[in-house]
Computed example of a mutant assay.
Amino acid sequence: MSNRSSEALSPLPKRLKEARLAKGLSQKRLGVLAGIDEFSASSRMNQYEKGKHAPDFATLKRLSDELGVPTCYFLCEEDWLATALMNIFSLSLSKQKNIAQLIQDEKI
């Protein structure tokens, strides 16, 4: 499988765009908020959302912080798991820990 086709399978471009739109941010605004230079923010975000390039982890972390989503959401292949992660992330920390303990106790 070529590099190009494996990049197309990445969930990151679609999820990044959806999360940005849900926050009502332009590509440029999100890029600037995440620390990307104002003059290249729009084009870099466009490349990320088109799957032409992927942000390094530090940039992805800043993007996830600005969008209020867990960083792993962008990389999770399974849609059902990404949805579950978002639901868990929206809970209080104590509830998140309770869920983690329940899963560990069940050995799922």
Score class of each variant (00 low, 15 high):
residue 3 N to R: 11
residue 3 N to C: 09
residue 5 S to H: 08
residue 5 S to T: 14
residue 8 A to R: 08
residue 9 L to H: 01
residue 10 S to W: 01
residue 11 P to G: 15
residue 11 P to Y: 05
residue 11 P to F: 04
residue 11 P to A: 11
residue 12 L to N: 05
residue 12 L to W: 04
residue 12 L to E: 05
residue 13 P to V: 11
residue 14 K to M: 12
residue 15 R to P: 04
residue 21 L to G: 00
residue 23 K to F: 04
residue 24 G to C: 12
residue 24 G to K: 03
residue 25 L to R: 01
residue 26 S to H: 09
residue 27 Q to E: 13
residue 28 K to D: 14
residue 28 K to F: 05
residue 30 L to F: 00
residue 32 V to D: 06
residue 33 L to Q: 07
residue 33 L to N: 07
residue 33 L to Y: 01
residue 33 L to P: 00
residue 34 A to M: 06
residue 36 I to K: 04
residue 37 D to H: 13
residue 38 E to H: 09
residue 38 E to Q: 13
residue 38 E to L: 06
residue 39 F to Y: 12
residue 40 S to M: 09
residue 41 A to Q: 09
residue 42 S to R: 13
residue 42 S to E: 15
residue 44 R to C: 13
residue 44 R to L: 15
residue 45 M to V: 13
residue 45 M to D: 14
residue 47 Q to Y: 08
residue 49 E to C: 07
residue 49 E to H: 05
residue 50 K to M: 15
residue 50 K to D: 14
residue 51 G to Q: 06
residue 52 K to G: 07
residue 52 K to D: 15
residue 53 H to E: 12
residue 54 A to C: 00
residue 55 P to A: 11
residue 56 D to I: 03
residue 56 D to Y: 04
residue 56 D to W: 02
residue 60 L to F: 01
residue 61 K to C: 12
residue 62 R to Q: 14
residue 63 L to Q: 02
residue 65 D to L: 05
residue 67 L to A: 10
residue 71 T to K: 01
residue 71 T to F: 02
residue 72 C to H: 06
residue 72 C to W: 00
residue 72 C to G: 08
residue 75 L to F: 02
residue 75 L to D: 04
residue 76 C to I: 01
residue 77 E to D: 08
residue 80 W to E: 15
residue 82 A to L: 04
residue 83 T to H: 03
residue 84 A to F: 09
residue 84 A to S: 07
residue 85 L to K: 01
residue 86 M to N: 07
residue 87 N to W: 01
residue 89 F to Y: 08
residue 89 F to M: 02
residue 92 S to R: 13
residue 92 S to L: 10
residue 94 S to R: 05
residue 95 K to L: 11
residue 95 K to M: 10
residue 96 Q to G: 10
residue 96 Q to S: 09
residue 96 Q to P: 07
residue 96 Q to R: 11
residue 96 Q to H: 05
residue 98 N to I: 07
residue 99 I to C: 10
residue 100 A to G: 15
residue 101 Q to P: 00
residue 102 L to H: 08
residue 102 L to D: 15
residue 104 Q to H: 05
residue 107 K to G: 10
residue 107 K to T: 14
